[in-house]
Simulated assay, not measured.
Amino acid sequence: MRKLIAIVVFVLAGFATTQAQNSAKFEFESETIDYGIIKKGSDGVRVFKFKNVGDEPLIVEDVKSSCGCTIPKKPEKAIMPGEMGEIEVKYDTKRVGHIRKTVTVYSNAEEPIKALKIKGQITDDTES
């Protein structure tokens, strides 16, 4: 009986370890987008590119920005292991000044909450 219990415990422990290793995982090309110095009214669309380096489908559940001046767009479908995905952000370039914003990604990845950054500066050539 002890041997049977030991075998069951061993099998369950092995199953739990295997399950813990299977997960989706982000690998971003860059976790910060630097707009640099751009003119007021310039194209504010940029893209965070990533790869699912895990062994499970990666589902981006939600993407939120730290203010209404940045509009993120999440992938609509799951990113399969080994596939590339994109998170698009659009910054309102009518706002002159420094850019320092956070885009927070919520997913089923090994790291379920991921903070991405955008930075830069918007200039207005009409000011003297």
Results as ranks from 00 to 15, higher is better:
T70K: 08
I113K: 06
M84L: 11
R95I: 10
M84H: 06
I38R: 00
R2I: 09
M84E: 13
Y91R: 13
P75K: 06
V63L: 13
I59Q: 11
A109N: 00
E86Y: 01
E88D: 06
P57T: 12
E61D: 12
S107N: 05
D125F: 01
Y106H: 00
A24H: 04
D55F: 11
M84F: 02
I113E: 08
T93D: 07
D62E: 15
F28M: 11
G97V: 06
I99M: 02
Q121W: 04
K64V: 15
Y91L: 09
A20I: 10
K114D: 02
K90H: 11
E56T: 14
R2S: 10
K101F: 05
I59L: 11
T126Q: 08
E31R: 14
Q21S: 12
Q19I: 14
F28Q: 11
K51F: 04
S42E: 03
V96Y: 02
P72G: 15
E110Q: 08
M80Y: 10
G68I: 10
L12Y: 03
E127V: 08
D125I: 01
D125P: 03
M1Y: 08
E56F: 06
K40Q: 14
A6P: 00
T123L: 05
K25A: 10
K94M: 07
N108H: 05
Y35L: 12
D55T: 15
V9H: 01
I113P: 00
I7S: 04
C67T: 15
R2G: 13
A6S: 09
Y106R: 00
V11P: 04
V96K: 10
L4G: 05
Y91H: 14
A13Q: 06
I87D: 04
N108K: 04
L116W: 06
I122C: 05
K25Y: 07
K90W: 09
E110V: 04
E56N: 13
D34N: 14
I118N: 01
K90E: 15
K101G: 08
K39D: 14
R95Y: 00
M84A: 12
Y106P: 00
M84P: 02
E110C: 03
G68L: 13
E127N: 07
L12K: 02
K77E: 10
K90Q: 12
A109G: 01
K114R: 08
M1T: 09
D62C: 06
V45W: 11
I59M: 11
I38Q: 00
I87R: 02
A20F: 10
P75G: 12
E86Q: 13
L58I: 13
R100F: 06
I99E: 00
K119V: 05
E76K: 15
A24S: 12
R95A: 06
N22D: 00
I99A: 01
S30R: 05
I87W: 04
K3V: 07
